[in-house]
Design a protein around this nucleic acid. Structure first.
Lengths: 325, 325
DNA sequence: ATGAAAGCGCTAACAA
DNA sequence: TTGTTAGCGCTTTCAT
């Protein structure tokens, strides 16, 4: 692969001139520049990233650390980060913590060696560890906010509150909430949001734990939901809601006639469930794009004060919810 | 961040000794090595990747290029590649072509500057372009085979053939195949496999095109499937099959009593569809792991002759298929 | 067993 | 406007 020296020789100039012609564009004779660009192109010259990184301290890469690449919840986030980054000429470094919180600090450190900035998605690290990481490299948090660090998050509490309000509006006075993983931070927000809203609307809220935020777990808790005597059930996420919905219908329960069902995330494709699942749209792809943009902003100016963006969630009403019996 | 010089100074040795102690381990006094390791650890020394890359030519990274990160089909592949790579101490570089074939060569080139080896997942590049990329850096192909280049693929033709055989065994003589995207290479393999198998088993095969391999498209072609008078339908993938299944049931058709339905990929979670969808398991996660292992092998010895691994698919029979009416 | 020194390819002063 | 040169942090001969 051609080096800057090859280009310089072929163009009959010094390597410094090649460097200038290729980069900033400052003070280079127009004719020379054209000549250099031409030969560089002819030789298919590609600047060596490692060398440039060494010389400038800028690597031209961003790192993304997330809990689980294969999780459909994080896929869109990663995808839109990658899209924005690529478009801006940044490379994307990936690390997957496989849901192991303990592995995160080490992975983040390894990442930070090769990137200019980090995006931590749904990080399980302690606030302290996050701060340590953020001090080393410009960092943007996704779906997790820590004081003094840039971050984007979805306002899950607000989403859940709005969803409960919507259900209350339909006349439901006893609502069951199928909870997600205890460790989940967004889970805490959702529970807080729905609890507060239930109080405000005078709704009796019954919280039902679940094994995991999956379709199968949803099926498993369906019976307990029915036994609770609630007229509506809201789940931590769509998968759970879907499981509940499927199971209760198997048991002959009419949805939404006898039981209203709602989820969170809007992760089910149109038509996948009948009736359509009322849910809350979390706009994950957008979060990724915003995160990438925030990181770029910070890479441009480290002295900016930390920014936080909270994306509103929108309740999407479909056929799985209806008036209380 | 501490450099090798800091460690050398603190340990009272030269940087060369530090380098030796930290790496190969060749010719270093045991006491010195211990001392160096100790101070390196105390200073939390992390070798600078860019510098090491410059000096050795080895970057310690692998690059993954795939058509669409958010696609649940590729997620598991990427996840297992990342897992194997991380475990071996490699970093993972990601590029997403967003299904744009034309963008691939450039992305691959950009990737190759920062990695020791590449994994191209379901690449849409021409054989020539793939070969060019592979000549520049050790490369492993996933779900796409090219002569002279390492690769892992799922034997989709065999999978489809086995699936059709299974359906034929149930007595179906007229089968409808809902095709996927025309450009898809695996689509060509599937069509070839099912066509050959149909001939062999004396089954009349009717091919029905679809807009895209999605649930919605499946719903859209359902009516045409019914009109075809076939007693069984096999779809390019599970999403399509699911769409068909859902729609025909809405239309009052009994599955599998009046129509047997089967898909491909085993991408639906247990219980998501009723009855369970008969399908073919493509073992994507495994493909990723195999690809990563192959790449590591090749990074170890470039002179090895190209290897190709074809993973068998297994038909999984569930409730959506049954004896012909 | 250890150290000195020459690069790896590039950028960024500083000179000219 | 252009060239010379000193590193960036590390590995790796070659001496010692």
């Amino acid at each position: 692969m051609a080096t800057i020296h090859d280009v310089a020789r072929a163009a009959g100039v010094s390597i410094a001139t090649v460097s200038r012609a290729l980069n900033g564009g400052a003070r280079v004779n127009e004719a020379t520049r054209r000549k250099v660009l031409e030969t560089a192109h002819a030789l298919d010259f590609r600047p060596n990233h490692a060398a440039r990184g060494l010389a400038t301290g800028r690597l031209g890469n961003v790192g993304v650390l997330l809990p689980e690449v294969a999780n459909p919840f994080y896929g869109p986030i990663l995808a839109s980060i990658a899209q924005v980054a690529q478009q801006r000429g940044f490379g994307v470094f990936l690390a997957d913590s496989r849901e192991e919180a303990a592995a995160e600090p080490e992975l983040a450190t390894r990442l930070s060696l090769q990137v200019d900035g980090l995006i931590l998605v749904a990080s399980r690290m302690s606030d302290e560890d996050v701060t340590v990481v953020a001090r080393r490299r410009p960092t943007v948090l996704v779906n997790r906010l820590v004081d003094g660090v840039d971050g984007v998050a979805v306002d899950a509490a607000q989403g859940m509150a709005d969803l409960l309000a919507q259900v209350a509006l339909l006349g439901h006075r006893r609502v069951c909430y199928v909870d997600g993983p205890a460790a989940s931070r967004s889970g805490a927000a959702k529970r807080a949001g729905i609890t507060r809203a239930a109080e405000r609307h005078g709704v009796e809220l019954r919280v039902e734990p679940s094994q995991s935020p999956t379709f199968v777990s949803g099926r498993a808790v369906a019976q307990r939901v029915l036994d609770s005597g609630c007229t509506a059930v809201i789940a931590f996420d769509d998968l759970l809601a879907w499981g509940v919905l499927t199971r209760v219908r198997e048991l002959g329960v009419d949805v939404p006639g006898e039981l209203s069902v709602a989820g969170f995330d809007d992760s089910l494709q149109d038509g996948m469930v009948t009736p359509g699942l009322t849910t809350v749209a979390a706009r994950n792809g957008e979060m990724g794009a915003v995160a990438a943009a925030m990181l770029e902003r910070r890479l441009g100016d480290q002295s900016l004060s930390p920014a936080t963006e909270v994306l509103r969630c929108n309740v999407i009403v479909r056929g799985s919810t209806g008036p209380a019996a």
